[in-house]
Design a protein around this nucleic acid. Sequence first.
RNA 1: GCGGCCAUAGCUCAACUGGUUAGAGCGCAGGACUGUGACUCCUGAGGUUACCGGUUCGAUCCCGGUUGGCCGCCCCA
Length: 430
Amino acid sequence: MSQKVSGVKGMNDILPGDVEVWQHVERTAREVFGRFGYGEVRTPIVEDTALFVRSVGETTDIVGKEMYTFEDKGGRSLSLRPEGTAPAARAYIEHSINNQEPITRWFYMGPMFRYERMKTGRYRQFHQIGAEGYGSKEPAHDVEMMDMVVQLLQKLGLTDVSLNINSLGDDTCRPAYQSRLVEHLRAHADELCADCKVRLEKNPLRVLDCKNERCQQIANAAPNITESLCEPCRAHFAEVQRKLDVLGIKYVVNPRIMRGLDYYTRTTFEFIAAHPALGTASTVGGGGRYDKLVKSLGGPDVPAVGFGLGLDRLCLLLKESGQQFAPPVELFIAAADEGSADVAFGLVSRMRREGLRVEFDTRGGSLKSQMKRADKTGARFTLVLGQNERDSGQAQLKPMAGGDAIPVRLDDLASAVREAIARPAAPPAS
RNA sequence: GCGGCCAUAGCUCAACUGGUUAGAGCGCAGGACUGUGACUCCUGAGGUUACCGGUUCGAUCCCGGUUGGCCGCCCCA
């Protein structure tokens, strides 16, 4: 036998049985986002490497060491997208959307790629559902974004998720804050962990994120970013909170929500799930405002805000809830004898055309084996078709959960099945 | 990228400190029941013990490497 083939590390198949959960999340997201007026955008999975270097940031982990980058035959440096915001912004700019409408509401869903050490809820090909709002710098749009996530999570029944918000300031106040922070950290540089000594130079804000105990103490004593905002940023952040209150959305102000991407300004937020199934991968979604991103990519000076949700993680949580998402087979048709196979097959086709979910054992076989098959499929009803039924045009609709069979006319089968399904299940025979 | 744990049937796991034909439950298939599934009983298929090499009379077990998975750190979705 030949060597068995295998998939790429960190990239998973989603098989029937699991895929229904995914479809349910995707369907629900489309429905909820649609209500908010967001339209789906589909961008390529591959982009010019420079797009991510310029937007996500050269010093970030994502660009620094996690991108799948390769050269195509024309010598171009291309990368598998590690996130969805930059490609959306690129498309927004490329099609001059800002000249066509003042406000743009987009969402996307699809695979993203990061070369990382694998864990539960963390894969090299993972999937995000994200949304982008362009053209409004108002806090209302930040809050609309969060509301959209809240409504989606609610609709999915994922209630044990908390919203954490923060503000990173903007070009006016962040540099000033950053230098004050660096000043404070420098004073304690000897006590910082090895990683943080590097962060101090490369990305000092990240020190605030460090889990090391001593670093935390130093970070806690550091100037607080939310107290260092310039007046416009402070007002913006206050209004975000006020509008969250208006909508009755619960949140926590968490100065440690830094985000790992460079393009964020002002508002940042994360949705963090409490469920232990995710382990340390508890962030199911994150986002924020990036008012300078579009311009920095050569586009117009258009403010934007958005988020990304980890579809894989949402599905993990939903699977834990034990809900069933696969629609049941409504009718199974069995042929009692060879001679009835064609008539049965024809009936199956007709019922499917009528819109019923119908199964049939294409291999034929004994009636018994077909009945077993019917049981395995979880069919609500089974109909056995043989000589008697062909002669009389009458058949028995057998409820697989138990109870009396229902006499039906074959001419009338589809509506009879629909009626039987709508009827509350008969009490089990005692 | 760093540290630790693990890998036996489709799935969940056994195999008495290295010993002869590697077992069970579930699942799958067939039968008991030739026009009726599930429950019960019987039977069957399914393994290069992840892969490669080493030690040994002999390796699922010990050692090294590879690949894959899990946990913590880091980071994030």
